[in-house]
Computed example of a mutant assay.
Amino acid sequence: MSKSAEDSDGFQKVKLKRCAKNKPTKIPSKGIQLETQEITIDFDKVLKRIHCAVDDIRLANYFEDVLKSVSNILQTRNVVEIVCLGLGHVAECNISRYQLALLLALKESLKPDKVLVHDPIFYKSECELLTKLGLQVILENNEGNYVISDKGPTVVYFPHCPKQLTNNFLWSNWGPNLENCVLICNSFSSLIDNQPSRILAETVPYILKIQPHTTEESLKNSFKYTDIFNDTAIHEFSKENLEKLDSNFWMKGEKPTYENTEEFITSLMIQKLNI
């Protein structure tokens, strides 16, 4: 949590997502009870903007690169599901809107059985909007602890999400079934290169452990808005690589916990959020 001073109304300001249009989110101080605020959405206007963004994505070389990379991993296998966490406020934020557009373009191309989305900061009206777009909204904040299907490939899309969420996802799926995961998120290699191994081992050990056995394809940041998909990579956990690992590698401890971070929204925090 931020160490900034409290407002006069007893709140602490915490910046949740890097987006120019997002307002600082306020986490209530201890003892203050609040109800979740809501916004009114002009659905026709917002849907029109989203569809325009999808058209932009479809025509972009960036999407062509993403689809080619994912298709090369899938080969002839059909996608069972797409899971997307951390879109942010899709009704207000241009970055979030284009990240949603990429998700919708992938849905259209890959034709999965279902597409699931979650962000603990979604407004109720945004959940309704996403449902209108044919997406299933996960209401519970599982902090990235989603277990993928063992029936076939799952495309997992974490646009600019905190590394703790990705670490939780890996912990939840720790085992050979990761071969069924195609993970689109911030580059593992970039994270490893830019932070000391000692710190990563303490904070995100599952990313650190799996990275040497991951096939990563960095995506050229060629989209016209360069702050939307920067540092994004596609990560494959191939059966060939995973079969080389013995059973000891897959041993895991208790669910990870995190301290001294304001970027990762836990389920306990979201109970107190005033959004």
Rank of each mutant, 00 (worst) to 15 (best):
T257H: 03
L130G: 00
Y98S: 14
F63V: 04
D119E: 06
L67H: 11
V79M: 07
L104W: 10
K15Y: 06
H118Y: 08
V204D: 08
A53K: 04
S197Q: 14
S190Y: 11
L139Q: 05
L208C: 11
K244G: 00
D227P: 01
S8W: 00
Y206R: 11
L116A: 02
Y62G: 02
I32S: 03
E240H: 00
S222P: 03
C161D: 12
I234W: 06
K124A: 09
K272R: 15
L268T: 09
T214L: 11
L200I: 12
E64S: 09
I184A: 07
K17R: 07
S187A: 10
K244Y: 00
T257E: 08
Q271K: 13
V147H: 04
L273I: 15
K272N: 14
V182L: 05
I32M: 11
M269H: 07
L178Q: 11
E254S: 14
M1D: 04
Q136R: 03
C52T: 13
C93Y: 13
A105D: 14
K151P: 03
C185V: 15
P153S: 11
Y258V: 03
Y258Q: 06
S71R: 09
N274W: 10
A233F: 02
E217C: 02
L106T: 07
K272H: 12
Y157N: 01
T76H: 07
N194K: 03
I32T: 12
D42F: 07
N22P: 02
S2A: 02
R198N: 11
G152D: 05
N168C: 15
D113P: 02
S109V: 04
I192P: 04
I95E: 15
Q164V: 11
F264I: 04
T40A: 11
P28V: 07
D56C: 05
D246R: 03
E179I: 15
G86Q: 09
V204W: 09
D119C: 08
I39M: 08
S189D: 15
I50A: 05
N221I: 12
D56H: 06
P24N: 12
L268M: 02
P212N: 15
F264T: 06
G253D: 09
V79G: 09
K48M: 03
A105S: 15
N141Q: 06
I199C: 04
L100Y: 08
Q195C: 08
K124S: 12
V155H: 02
E263C: 08
K68N: 04
S109Q: 14
K239V: 06
E143G: 02
